[in-house]
Simulated assay, not measured.
Amino acid sequence: MEFTINGKAVEVACDTRTSLLDLLREQLGLSGTKKGCNQGACGACTVLVDGERINSCLALAVQYQGRDITTVEGLSGEGGLHPLQQAFVAHDGFQCGYCTPGQLCSAVGMMAEARRGMPSVVSADLCASSVVLDHDELRERMSGNLCRCGAYNGIADAISETFEAESAAQPALKEAA
Rank of each mutant, 00 (worst) to 15 (best):
Q86K: 09
A87M: 05
A87K: 06
F88T: 13
F88R: 12
V89M: 08
A90E: 14
A90H: 15
H91T: 03
H91I: 04
H91A: 05
D92W: 11
F94C: 07
C96H: 05
C96Y: 06
G97S: 06
G97W: 03
Y98M: 07
Y98A: 01
Y98G: 01
C99Q: 01
C99K: 03
T100S: 10
T100Q: 09
T100Y: 10
P101H: 02
Q103M: 15
L104C: 06
L104M: 07
L104N: 06
L104Y: 00
C105D: 10
C105Q: 11
A107H: 04
V108S: 04
M111Y: 08
M111C: 06
A112S: 04
A112I: 05
E113M: 00
E113Y: 03
E113R: 03
A114W: 07
R115A: 15
R116N: 13
G117I: 07
P119D: 11
P119F: 12
S120M: 13
S120P: 11
S120N: 15
V121D: 13
V121R: 14
V121I: 15
V122S: 05
V122W: 08
S123Q: 08
A124I: 15
D125S: 10
D125V: 10
L126R: 14
C127N: 15
C127D: 14
A128F: 09
A128S: 11
A128K: 08
A128I: 07
A128H: 05
S129V: 12
S129G: 15
S129F: 09
S130C: 10
S130T: 12
S130W: 03
S130G: 09
V131Y: 04
V131K: 00
V131E: 02
L133S: 00
L133I: 01
H135K: 00
L138M: 08
R139L: 02
R139D: 06
R139I: 06
E140A: 12
E140L: 05
E140D: 11
R141V: 01
R141W: 01
